[in-house]
Design a binder for these strands. Sequence first.
DNA 1: TAGGTTGATGACACGTCATGTCATCACCCT
DNA 2: AGGGTGATGACATGACGTGTCATCAACCTA
Lengths: 185, 185
Amino acid sequence: MSRWPPDTRERLRQAAFELFAEQGFAETTVPAITARAGLTTRTFFRHFADKREVLFTDDAEVPAMVERMMTEAPASASPMTVVLEGLRTVAETRFEPRKAAIRQLRELVRSDDGLRERDLRKRAAMADAVRQGFLTRGLDGTRAALLAETCVTLVYVAMTEWLDSDRALYDIIRDTAETLRAELG
Amino acid sequence: MSRWPPDTRERLRQAAFELFAEQGFAETTVPAITARAGLTTRTFFRHFADKREVLFTDDAEVPAMVERMMTEAPASASPMTVVLEGLRTVAETRFEPRKAAIRQLRELVRSDDGLRERDLRKRAAMADAVRQGFLTRGLDGTRAALLAETCVTLVYVAMTEWLDSDRALYDIIRDTAETLRAELG
DNA sequence: TAGGTTGATGACACGTCATGTCATCACCCT
DNA sequence: AGGGTGATGACATGACGTGTCATCAACCTA
């Protein structure tokens, strides 16, 4: 048996989510979170860089996942093919099963400017991972940045629609990609 | 003559830029800024919502400018035509004359995660203005969001290249748009 | 010109966030 | 048995951001 109860990080996350749901993000202090989790304030900041970060732990592995998928894809595949195939996996494994949680997170993010900024940063991190993947695949810098940003835009616009519909995310992504292609052509 | 020296806001901005350049953003405290400007800490926060905001005052009018241009464009013009025409004006009037300042701002933003987040928020605000413009022009929600985000992506990818080159921003934007079209088609 | 209003700033208190530092002590290893 | 390790507690500290009231030049308005 350990000196302290296990799962410190998860208990903090749990307490934070509960309190944010009960009172809102800004109204919840870090001491309140740690009190509920039975820990001290200092410990919270040992596990999360700041109060916002506790809401985005699930996305931590996504960039690495993206890079791996992009390097493993056949070298012959066209950029957009690689992206769409990768998105199919991400959509089915990481987004579809967590739809309710993502919806709840969206509401929280909408309620606070600071959270909105952090959300945008996560989005930018994802774009950067995709960009790296394209660079690895030999695209020039401009093209890699352009396609990466476009890809992330696609996902987020599609996700907005997905959260308010009953359709599969990947289907919406494909439609959105088609819409964009048509609009630019 | 007024009770206090005029241009409070501009003096604060000036002092902040100087100190950020001298010591970096994180190392500069708000009291240090107000001391240099000959004011009190409280006054700083009367003029700027937070320490970051002082770096982005120039972009404050851009969203309104975007919306105006988009409503004034002929109703017959295609979405991408409207955008590219608007971007010509923005590029020439707001970006080209401030190239050195924008370059300096980019370095600061790169040096601090908090500033990066704020920068992304400004970018999102611009995308939202464009989206509103498209909505006003009768596009459906998805299409408006998609094109707006794509437009902003275009500008930022192009700007990255522009800051390290001698070409005109608008020319780069056109090339970038063409690259995207080709890559998606 | 007297007197009231306005609006920007000063002065002060306060709560929260975030970090540095040292002590503690169950667990593990040898 | 004894030292090392690593997570947590305890405490201090400083910066950020806000609420509140006082101040007082400039501007009305009569």
